[in-house]
Every structure is written in structure tokens, then in C-alpha cells.
Computed example of a mutant assay.
Amino acid sequence: MVFSEGHGRGAGESSPVGNVSLLRPAEQFFDEMLAGWSMQQTSRMLAAQTIKTRAAQVRRFADFCGTSPWEWSPTDVEEWTTSLVSGARPLAVSTVRAYQNALALFCDYLTDHRYGWADRCVEAFGTHPVQVCHEWNTVVHTSDHESRPAVRPLTRVELQAFFDYADELVDRARSSGRKGWLTLFRDATLFKMIYAFGLRRREVAMLDLPDFTRNPKGWEFGRFGVCNVRWGKAMKGSPPRRRAVLAVFDWTRPVIEEYVTEVRPRFGLADASILWPTERQGRIRLDHIDDRFADWRDDLGLDPVVHPHCLRHSYVTHLIEDGFDPLFVQQQVGHRWGSTTALYTGVSGDYRNRTLRRALDAAFTAPTVEEG
């Protein structure tokens, strides 16, 4: 097909000079659409990773359909969604929504008359793209918290057993002279830091040694009094949110200090800042964190639904049980709303009973009357 000069084009597209025939018009059209959409999002100052992820999600949908955007229909969305939630490893509701949202935004861009894609598609292919996502075939966001009900904080006994098992594996490998003891030690410390500071997987994986600083009000923790999180969960395409998490457990300093001074240097660091280096000098991967946790969890016979994020739930729960102010806990984990923190909290029955007993005693115990 041939384009004439001066034809209106979508934002961010490269315009063919003169009359130039495209070798693969459908494929090149799709690439130009994605490029234009990326530039539109960049103009809105969205994070580069958000833009990249959305484009990948749209391409995943296109690969599933095997057709071009101007041929998509609502039925394609429904079949795709069904495939995402089927099989041995169905995606979470929040993940499915993110995929659908990316697709809907892309279709909004294509059908906006200001970018001229509809007219170009009609001229080139005799049809045009439509919005294929609507209120009847997409996930409705009804709750701020959509994790599976079975996902829960670990009890203190389970948590101690998990950490003890990790330490046992390290000691066993170290005493036998196995090289793998370094990575076992690293991973055991990493899981302890997830719990010690209530971190998400990505937050802990992206930590650098300089991210730890002193807390002038917490001299007991030395240089590890504050964990400065640089890769917090982003909101609506914004850059990662930052927060400073204060150390609260007395065992935090000796655990991280031993790893930093005695174990981490043995990796032969090419990048002196990375906190969790691999043997190939890279940064630890999220899927490795998942796999390692799953192996140790299964060895201990814990519920298969438990995953690394449960350590963050445990952190919130145990701080609340220990009497920390809910607002302090909310700020520590970086939640915008206290209701989200409350949903992370799974206090034990014993804690609830003790709390109830204190309230009942205060309400129904008659005050002592002094004899005059």
C-alpha cells in the first residue's frame, strides 16, 4: 500500500517520505501505534517501566488473538481473560485487571480522533479499531486489597521455624565446605530483612548498601537504623515511591552486620553498592526469591499458599500485637490508607482475647472508693 504526503498521522510516528510501500503494513502499523502511544504516555511523565510493561501486555494480547488492533473485538478480550485465569497457575485478579487496563488505554488512544488512527486504518485496511474493553467484560475494582483469603501472616512459631531452618541449612553447608553456603546465607538474611523492615520483594531486591543509614534516636542499631526504600510501589504510572523505614527489632543489627562484613565481600563484588549480589555479579532476581522461599516452605510443610509477601503481612501483624501505634505501622510499610494496613493485619486469637479482657476490665471494674 502507498501513503501520500501530508496525510494526518498518529502522535510519535515516523512518516514515510513521499510514496513508500510498506513491506509488512499490518505489523508496521502496529509498531507505529505502540510507538505513538508510548510517546503520549511519556508526555504525561509516566514512568518508563510502566510504559514498557503496558506495551508488553498489549503485545501479549495481540499474540493471543493473532490479529491486528483494527480487527480486535470484545469477544477476544473475554477469551483472553479466560485463558489468563485458567490452567495450573491462574493469574491474580489484580494482575488480570492490570492487563485489561493496559489494553483499554491502548484502545482509547487508537480511537481518539485527535490521533487519526481510525481514518488511516479505514484507508489502508477498510476497517478501524474500536474499544474492545467495556464494563461487562473487565474486572471491576471494588476493593483496595484483593489477595487470596488463604494468604495470611505467619505465626511467630512458623516464622521462627522458617528462620531456624534457613540458618540450619547455612550451618550444614558451611561445615561441609560446600560453596553454596554463601548464597544460602545471603538468602536467609534477605528473608529476615523482608520481615525486619516489612518490605516487598522488589523493594528488598533493589536495596543497595548505602540505603541503610543511622537513626539518631536509635543508636542501638548503628548504621542500620533506617532502611531507605527507593523502589516502593508506584501509583498510576508515577515513579517508585520512597520511604524511610525505621529498625524496630533488636536482632536486626547483628543479623545484617554479620552478612555485610563477613559474607557479602566473599562474592567478589564488581559493584560495591549491591546488597544482594549473585555469583555472576548481578542483582538477585525476584523469581529466585520466590523459588527459594517456596523450597524452604515446602520442606517445613507450611501451607503452599504462603509466599514471601506473607513476611510483610507478618511484620504488620506482629507490630500491632506488640502495641505499636497503627499510624506508625502504616507509615513504616508505606500504605496510603490505614484501611489497607488493617487488611494486612491478622492478629492471633490470643491477642484479641487479651485486648478484649483489658477493655472489659476497664469498663466494668468498679473504681476503688477510699474510706474517708
Rank of each mutant, 00 (worst) to 15 (best):
residue 198 G to W: 08
residue 270 A to F: 05
residue 364 F to R: 05
residue 171 D to L: 09
residue 18 G to L: 07
residue 237 G to D: 03
residue 17 V to H: 05
residue 182 L to T: 13
residue 272 A to T: 09
residue 146 E to F: 02
residue 108 D to G: 03
residue 213 T to H: 01
residue 219 W to F: 11
residue 252 T to Q: 08
residue 103 L to H: 01
residue 51 I to G: 01
residue 199 L to R: 01
residue 183 T to Q: 10
residue 130 V to C: 01
residue 218 G to F: 02
residue 345 T to D: 15
residue 27 E to M: 09
residue 155 T to V: 04
residue 229 V to T: 02
residue 234 A to I: 02
residue 274 I to L: 15
residue 12 G to W: 00
residue 210 P to G: 07
residue 219 W to D: 14
residue 5 E to P: 01
residue 102 A to M: 06
residue 189 T to D: 00
residue 348 S to N: 12
residue 300 L to P: 06
residue 126 G to A: 09
residue 172 R to C: 00
residue 108 D to M: 03
residue 212 F to N: 08
residue 119 D to M: 10
residue 135 E to Y: 06
residue 357 R to I: 03
residue 297 R to D: 08
residue 320 I to H: 08
residue 101 N to W: 03
residue 38 S to Q: 13
residue 174 R to Q: 13
residue 281 Q to C: 09
residue 157 V to N: 11
residue 44 R to T: 00
residue 171 D to T: 04
residue 352 R to G: 00
residue 305 V to N: 06
residue 236 K to P: 00
residue 313 H to D: 06
residue 54 R to Q: 14
residue 163 F to L: 11
residue 35 A to W: 01
residue 20 V to A: 12
residue 297 R to P: 08
residue 20 V to K: 13
residue 358 R to F: 01
residue 278 T to M: 07
residue 1 M to S: 12
residue 336 R to M: 05
residue 66 G to T: 06
residue 91 L to G: 11
residue 164 D to F: 02
residue 80 W to L: 03
residue 230 R to V: 04
residue 369 V to F: 06
residue 90 P to D: 05
residue 62 A to R: 14
residue 212 F to R: 07
residue 219 W to Y: 10
residue 154 L to T: 10
residue 317 T to K: 10
residue 156 R to Y: 00
residue 343 L to A: 14
residue 172 R to S: 09
residue 122 V to T: 04
residue 207 L to N: 13
residue 296 W to C: 02
residue 311 L to F: 13
residue 168 E to T: 09
residue 135 E to N: 10
residue 15 S to V: 14
residue 372 G to R: 13
residue 209 L to E: 12
residue 229 V to A: 01
residue 227 C to D: 10
residue 31 D to R: 08
residue 171 D to H: 03
residue 230 R to W: 07
residue 308 P to W: 05
residue 18 G to F: 08
residue 360 L to D: 08
